[in-house]
Amino acid sequence: MNMQTTIAGVTFKNPVMTASGTFGSGMEYGEFVDLNQLGAVVTKGVANVPWPGNPTPRVAEVYGGMLNAIGLQNPGIDVFMDRDIPFLKQYDTKIIVNVCGKSVEDYVEVVEKLGDEPAVSMLEINVSCPNVTEGAIAFGQKADALYNITEEIKKHAKQPIIMKLSPNVTDITEMAKAAEAAGADALSLINTITGMKIDIHRRKFAIANKTGGMSGPAIKPVAVRMVYQAAHAVQIPIIGMGGIANAEDAIEFILAGASAVSIGAMNFVNPYTTIEVVKGIEDYMKRYNVENLTDLTGAVDV
């Protein structure tokens, strides 16, 4: 039985990754799970300089999920490379660095610095964070803007790039195709869905930023649908995410067309989710005599 999956020439021991921003750089959850057992650790978005993020409250609970507006707080690429990469290098897992920025130049600066670090296998470009006013999301909601930034980053990137798509668009296939046409090596989706919660007793927004990105089990059907649509629109591999809580959820994404999956908000609910998903996928493969995990990708209704 073979759980390996290969994306843009990078082979992962299994298809289970962490969703950016929910797992830090692995240090905190390393106390709960053996990072060696993960396909990859995808780190929190990092920019060219430190970002302070948004005011609090930054998180709120909603039915079957949560809203967040962290605002991409991060220590900046230099600290990240001095501290977080050496930490992750100790483990036998792949490192995917999530990159954020306010302008094309910001992204390029980070991408170029990471180019000198062979331990980083891939870059995930976050053009879809709904919680920062400038940049970011603007690149992820218009096909031509997405095309341009992808093309520009591709010129400077030494590692293969994953474009992380926003679900806050009318037609996900248009975005997927634009990223592919501009040279993206892979796609990841979905980022959070913009939401809002109002505390009726205090007559205040539950999140200081007013809007927040929704994630968690409640968004899973939307995410599975988008992964399926994107997988039918492009040839490049897809990393699927959005509400994955267990192996059954992960397999749904894989059958819909994902080559790998990421676990996000559910780490907060059960810090052991990632390794439980690895084990559960293995059990499923045994039960249905699946020799290669890759045989499952897109295997719905065939």
């Binding site: 921003g21 929910t22 797992f23 830090g24 240090m27 905190e28 959850y29 106390e31 709960f32 929190k44 993020g53 609090t56 409250p57 930054r58 998180v59 709120a60 949560m66 967040n68 962290i70 707080q73 908000a265 780490n267 907060f268 810090p271």
Partner: peptide, 16 residues
């Protein structure tokens, strides 16, 4: 006190 999601320092939700 602050609203928390992870409780372990990973999400950056609970800052002061």
């Amino acid at each position: 006190e602050e609203h928390m999601a992870c409780g372990v320092g990973a999400c950056l939700g609970c800052v002061v």
